[in-house]
Design a protein around this nucleic acid. Sequence first.
DNA 1: AAATTCCCTTGATTTTAATCAATGACTGAT
DNA 2: ATCAGTCATTGATTAAAATCAAGGGAATTT
Lengths: 193, 193
Amino acid sequence: MYELFFQAFNEKVPLTSEEQETIKTFLTPKKLRKKQYLLQEGDICKYIAFVEKGALKSYVIDDAGTERITQFALEGWTISDLYSFLTGEPATYHIDAIEDAELVLISKAAHEELLQKVPKYETYIRLQITGAYIALQRRLTSIISLPIEERYKNLIALYPSIVQRVPQHMIASYMGLTPETLSRVRGRVSGKK
Amino acid sequence: MYELFFQAFNEKVPLTSEEQETIKTFLTPKKLRKKQYLLQEGDICKYIAFVEKGALKSYVIDDAGTERITQFALEGWTISDLYSFLTGEPATYHIDAIEDAELVLISKAAHEELLQKVPKYETYIRLQITGAYIALQRRLTSIISLPIEERYKNLIALYPSIVQRVPQHMIASYMGLTPETLSRVRGRVSGKK
DNA sequence: AAATTCCCTTGATTTTAATCAATGACTGAT
DNA sequence: ATCAGTCATTGATTAAAATCAAGGGAATTT
């Protein structure tokens, strides 16, 4: 249990087996069926979720009632509404399962105790969030500086598994486009090359 | 010296005066004139810069040769090409001064030694980057889910000092718009209210 | 003080993406 | 096996932003 989680952890910060056992006592496994919510807007986000298996997405609903996807999380990724988790304020994002999923949950209490008791946990979190920050910065830069076709090619290059596994209308939502527009972009991209 | 830096640090993680003195030995002050570079694309990013005074921006140049601003940093903010800083790879961003500025620089060597020697520094960095991540996530969410007018209003509400101090064509660049479009958006926003 | 550069606005036109609408393929459930 | 729902594509039209172009202030330089 928690294989992938500890694999990812050890790659960032190598753990002794005692440390690993300590950390284990703070983790909770959870399974989620496709379409089930992990978090709904307005609720307090109680967990950081690490994806052992399956796929989730986080999103907001815009004024027109359309789902706007802010993040995907496949195996090995972490997902949460971090602001809500850290502050206890109501969540601004929804999170649900795109596919049946197995998660490793870290509760707020566990998170705080781990930060106190296991120095390597703080390092893990720091590195984790640094990686997430850099990825987000890249995504934002590509949105404001590249034409749509290039953004789509980048997405394929960077996250081929997302493009393969996730329905296209979700990719469109993630890119801030309509499904029709993405379909035409795909036509142009594959036609041209 | 370093007043604002330590004020920001202490707000996140309170320091004893000894700790503060230790950290001081790792910091370097630097002044930058308006339009001077702190970093150019392709160079290795050697510093994390904290802004004591003045204003900087980071940006990329797109295929059409247009500057696309990814971040502003006013007093109290931190700016860097974090990926380049951490990995030693060539920078993808330019950073320069919008106004004459006074900075506090943390070099790579200082950063690493501080992480080793001063546990509170790691906590500071963790909280710092967490805040930056949350801010970036908000910005991205507003880009993909809100109409331009709302995005502009949000920007004014969240960062009034940026909108006041920075020329409008830079705000346009930051929002991924042309200056003409932003000008018309402003007309609509002020006309309507 | 004059000249130059920078900055913002406004108008006309073109380009791009969104919307509206319809169709066919595939999926899953009963 | 059928029916409902999901999903992607394509076409026609509308809406929005970019581009092209020009002008007028304000600030900075000489």
